[in-house]
Design a protein around this nucleic acid. Structure first.
Length: 957
RNA sequence: GCCGUGGUGGCGGAAUUGGCAGACGCGCUAGCCUCAGGAGCUAGUCCGGGUAACCGGGUGGAGGUUCAAGUCCUCUCCACGGCACCA
């Protein structure tokens, strides 16, 4: 048998699995089902990254293990293939995005197959396949056909939406507009995040701190017609249903944070204008003012006599000394008095021009303008001024706030900026130092925690929580307020000005002049897909017009019932395809439905979903939302798609030395390397050269060479790993690793690196290390010196010794348990221990060796299959029963028990396993060393845990 | 600022319930072997002292609970990730 040569055996077994259809899955599970899914990759032009195989190896191990345990495993792979890079490449070179995408998919497919994952490749799909996005469009039509019924708490067909009589009386068009305003997919003209550099509008989730998540380009606010998805209707359920999911707490927290549920109250303030307000305003006076104002030509629609705010601290209502509305607030025009009109207008224009980045960046200095109007604080009728300021967001709550500068840091900043009144209404009591309390009561320090009410009329003396309940109840009685819940989550901006995305199955009705009327029609489901047209030009040169506006007329216009209709030219965002791919994998070739109901019922939910944490709030929230809509409409049978979620940690580049600790304890940064006289390199630092820090000589030939860690005992090195990036030049290419060490070594190393969830640095030395282990496994079983395939002479059909049996069964137990808890690094360590032990044995029982090969097979499947074949088995080991262990064989006859005196280890005694507590204590006392130490002492207490340890608590005398 | 995760040898990391801290691997040291290659084999490797048995110290820091703490409690420092004028 020749040496272990992965470059021969790996392609051999990959071909075998493919031609034998080893991992083909039946349409319906023929046993206990298990659906294990990887987040499908975006096939970029760079090819696979070592981060991809990390999670994928983990899921592959689980799948191979569970198959051997008899489960029917579904394990598919596909491509999230729409996206901007292919389109940007098309802009530059004219290569159609589909061509680029197919090429990249080809590279990814080759690389995935090279790693020997047990995917059912018959189910492969790409979001860009017409047969796939046809159903993405179909699901969009479901969203379009659904409205959210708050009473039922679920989505229902639009045909069931009750139409108010006055709307019905206005005719068919009014009814259609009413329905359109209630659909889960609706059009909006609200300001959007327009990114000129990317040439598209972005979702809130794609804008971070005012710049685009991708590329970090500035984003400006721009009103534009867009498609929105009403995810906010599902905010409550999206939050609540997290409870039942087996997901990491960190991801749940991230989603909760993003949904941002906060409970509090809505409070209504009567509004009026400053000139008409006397010392003590009251509702009658405001009504008089309104009548006056209406007479002078200002329209006064019903409902505008109050300004509604949302607050989480209704207990601070007595401290509300002014109000603020957002520049985009609908009531602002009416609130603005003639005298303040110019200032307010100028302020709003300035605010509109600001990008989100500017608004955030200038946070230190608050800006705002007085509107001229006053409001009456509903609890005491005190007049308070209404300001407009951009620190209040139009899109959260009611777009207006009551400002309590004594107990809110932002209001405090604003109040100081404009010298507004500050009234303390919460006494911190003894929760802060006396001096701080004085400052709070004087209004010079802001206190945002809970305390006791003061300056709050009848509520004085009530603790914060109690007063909140009472005041909300009282306001509700008077019709001036009510309990309320608000969410940070916004509706999902769902259209993009791209070519390379799913076209919307929507047609716009046109008026006589050929302009859209705002009314739309859905493309009937039986006329899907709406395919993308051939396009010569992809660049719209910085205009928000989508590239599809330049599509051929034949595509752009449709005649239906004698009317000319125009296609929607926006396309869907990249998230669309990934929102439901896990469902299509169940039934990828179905031409009649997105998934067969019986197949869906049999396989869902996904039992294990593994991917990066970067999708915590985007993909994972969107997919849950779509799934819930499909659930409400009866298309799927589970309320949640992904039962268990695991995030693999990021793999960083190799560690780099940044410094070392000098003899005197100082930390010195190491910068340069130069060759020393003895050929050994010297780390050069600021002014002094130190030879104590050693590096592998061949790695430090010239100044500036990168260092790998290498130090002996006395020297402490400082080192750091960074994210892999092209610019840093520390990207590890899986192709190279496979070429040099083999796919099994890559797989094994990715798992041995550390816990799956942890962030950890790459190490080529480490790959070499696990390759050494595989080499040893090979040599332990195969005869390396033989020309032909042959077992090692030490492997014989002999019964195992008691010790060998113990090692074997202990290994089976440990590896099994470690796989169950996804602790792959320790599972590998246990197999290394096994190998270290049996390598030294001259007799290696064949049965034990076969068992190890089965244990190893989920981790290093190619090597395992090859050895399995060497044992004379004709069939793949993929469905061999997983080895079982016998606890009786693990237990040793005798066990070594540590003996402590006063909690310190002082000796060990060897006793039979089931020694009783009394016998164990006696054995410990009779140990010569222990007896000597106990002499002359009194045993105060003896703690004896059979099978574990003995501890004597003693005192002198 | 808020939320989350984590801090253990020269390095990556072990230590399911509180019970012998440092499994396994890398690196390093010594020896053996070889067609002298970044191969293989054997032994050693937490720190300090001692030829040694052994002794003392030790899981970011300070307290505490306990016969016993890496593990539990209180406070605190640091690192990483996310959110951030969300009322």
């Amino acid at each position: 048998m020749p040496r272990y040569n992965p470059s021969v055996i790996e392609p051999k077994w990959q071909k075998h699995w493919e031609s034998e259809q080893t991992f083909a899955t039946p349409r319906l599970p023929n046993g206990e089902k298990l659906y294990v899914l990887d987040m499908f990759p975006y096939p970029s032009g760079d090819g696979l990254h070592v981060g991809h195989p990390e999670g994928q190896t983990a899921t592959d191990i689980v799948c191979r293990y569970e198959r051997m345990r008899g489960k029917c495993v579904l394990h598919p792979m596909g491509w999230d293939a729409f996206g901007l890079p292919a389109e940007q490449y098309a802009k530059k070179t004219g290569t159609p995005p589909r061509v680029t995408t197919e090429k990249n998919i080809g590279t990814f497919r080759r690389q995935e197959k090279m790693l020997g994952f047990s995917y059912d490749w018959d189910r492969e799909l790409a979001t860009t396949d017409v047969d796939y996005f046809r159903w993405t469009q179909w699901i969009f039509l479901v969203l379009f056909d659904t409205w959210f019924d708050p009473a039922a708490g679920k989505g229902r067909p639009i045909a069931e939406l009750p139409i108010p009589p006055d709307v019905a009386a206005d005719g068919e068009t009014a009814v259609r507009r009413y329905q359109d305003a209630h659909r889960l997919a609706y059009q909006s003209h609200a300001p959007v995040n327009w990114c000129p550099a990317l040439g598209t509008v972005l979702a809130n989730e794609e804008v971070i701190g005012g710049v685009s998540e991708r590329g970090g380009h500035p984003v400006v606010r721009l009103p534009l017609r867009q498609w929105m998805l009403r995810i906010t209707a599902y905010a409550d359920r999206l939050e609540r249903d997290l409870d039942g999911l087996d997901w990491p707490d960190s991801i749940k927290a991230l989603q909760r944070n993003w949904i941002g549920r906060s409970t509090g109250a809505e409070v209504d303030f009567f509004i009026g204008a400053a000139p008409s307000v006397s010392g003590k305003p009251n509702p009658q006076e405001f009504k008089a003012w309104r009548a006056e104002r209406a007479a002078s030509g200002f329209p006064a629609a019903a409902g505008d006599e109050v300004l509604r705010v949302f607050t989480t601290r209704p207990d601070t209502l007595y401290g509300a000394t002014y109000m603020v509305v957002a520049p985009e607030h609908p009531l602002l025009r009416r609130l603005t008095t003639p005298g303040q009109a110019d200032a307010v207008k100028a302020y709003c224009e300035q605010a509109a021009r600001k990008s989100d980045l500017d608004r955030t960046d200038l946070a230190k200095e608050k800006t705002g303008v007085f509107t001229g109007s006053m409001a009456a604080n509903p609890v005491n009728n005190r007049p308070i001024p209404i300001w407009v300021a951009d620190y209040v967001l139009a899109s959260y709550g009611t777009g207006a706030i009551m400002a309590v500068p004594a107990h809110d840091t932002r209001d405090a900043e604003f109040a100081r900026q404009f010298a507004l009144e500050i009234v303390a209404v919460v006494d911190p009591g003894t929760s802060v130092e006396a001096a701080v309390r004085e400052a709070v009561l004087a209004g010079s320090t802001t206190f945002t925690d809970e305390g006791t009410a003061i300056n709050s009329g009848p509520y004085n003396g009530q603790p914060t929580a109690e007063m909140q309940q009472n005041i909300v109840a009282d306001l509700a009685k008077r019709g001036q307020g009510r309990q309320a819940v608000n969410y940070k989550l916004r509706d999902w901006l769902f259209s993009r000005q791209h070519f390379w995305g799913e076209p919307f199955p929507i047609l716009h009705e046109l008026d006589a002049a050929g302009q859209p009327t705002g009314l739309v029609r859905a493309v009937p489901a039986d006329r899907l897909p709406v395919d993308l047209p051939e396009l010569a030009v992809f660049d719209t040169h910085g205009s928000p017009d989508p590239p599809l506006e330049r599509a051929p007329e034949a595509w752009l216009y449709v005649t239906e019932g004698g009317r000319r209709l125009k296609r929607e030219t926006n396309t869907m965002p990249q998230w669309a395809g990934s929102c439901w791919y896990y469902l299509r994998f169940l039934d990828p070739k179905n031409e009649k439905a997105f998934v067969d109901p019986a197949v869906e019922r049999a396989w869902m939910p996904v039992d294990l979903y593994v991917g990066g944490a970067e999708h915590a709030v985007l993909h994972l929230l969107y997919a849950r939302f779509w799934h819930k809509v499909l659930f409400d409409r009866g298309h799927v049978t589970t309320a949640e798609p992904f039962r268990r979620l695991i995030n693999q940690g990021m793999i960083l580049g190799e560690m780099e030395i940044t410094g070392y600790q000098a003899a005197d304890g100082r930390w010195v940064s190491a910068e340069l390397v130069t060759a020393g006289a003895d050929g050994k390199p010297i780390v050069k630092t600021s002014g002094e050269a130190v030879s104590a820090v050693r590096v592998a000589p061949e790695q430090a030939k010239k100044e500036g060479d990168k260092l790998t860690l290498a130090a002996d005992g006395g020297v402490r090195l400082e080192s750091r790993a960074h994210k892999m990036s092209k610019s840093r030049g520390n990207v590890v290419n899986p192709d190279e690793v496979v070429k040099q060490y083999g796919a099994d070594s890559l797989r094994l190393f990715e798992m041995f690196l550390g816990p799956l969830e942890a962030t950890k640095p790459w190490s080529m030395e480490g790959v070499n290390g696990v390759r050494g282990f595989l080499d040893r496994v090979w040599r332990m079983i195969a005869d390396e010196r033989s020309e032909t395939a042959a077992l090692n002479a030490a492997v014989q059909d002999t019964p195992a010794t008691e010790e060998q049996d113990r090692v074997l069964h202990r290994t089976i137990q440990a590896v099994t348990q470690d796989i169950e808890r996804m602790s792959f690094n320790t599972a590998i360590a246990k197999m290394m221990e096994f190998t270290n032990f049996f390598f030294k044995c001259d007799m290696r029982p064949r049965a034990a060796m076969e068992r190890l090969v089965l244990l190893l097979s989920p981790f290093a499947p190619h090597l395992a299959e090859e050895l399995w074949q060497l044992f004379g088995h004709a069939k793949t080991l993929a469905f061999e029963p997983w080895p079982t262990f016998d606890v009786g064989k693990i237990r040793e006859a005798s066990v070594e028990i540590p003996v402590q005196i006063g909690g310190k280890l002082r000796g060990r005694v060897t006793v039979p396993v089931d020694t009783t507590a009394a016998d164990l204590e006696a054995a410990a006392k009779s140990d010569p060393r222990i007896a000597e130490l106990l002499a002359g002492k009194t045993i105060v207490k003896a703690v004896v845990i059979p099978g574990k340890m003995v501890n004597f608590v003693v005192r002198d005398g």
